[in-house]
Amino acid sequence: MLSTLLRGCCIAAAGGVMVLLSAGAPAHANDEVRIGLITGGCVGCHGGEGGGGHGIPNIAKTMTRAEFVATMKAFRENKNNPTVMNRIARGYTDEEFALMAIRWAKPE
């Protein structure tokens, strides 16, 4: 499933019409739901659009997927002068970072 998710651009069939989804969108509605669940923690502070505010960084389309995942992994190691993100990042898997990146990173 992950390899499908991580492909940049997906084509889905809907009622015989080929729909070109926006770049970075997941292949299937169930994947989108799963991403919504995994990013349930992110949106609690960064907001539904990821824009942040009150000093909370904007995470919407500010990084490539690789940069996003690398940032999260660095937080796990207490890098980048963290306040809360180190404590948060240690609770998630690499696969979940990749799924988060689909929602937050620049379209690929």
Binding site: G44, G47, G48, G55, I56, T83
Partner: peptide
């Protein structure tokens, strides 16, 4: 710095959660 940032993050947290 940490305590100041977390006070501001708290406000962002409250706003983000309630707006959603």
């Amino acid at each position: 710095e940490q305590r100041r940032l977390e006070a501001h993050y708290a406000d962002g947290w409250y706003e983000a959660l309630t707006r959603q």
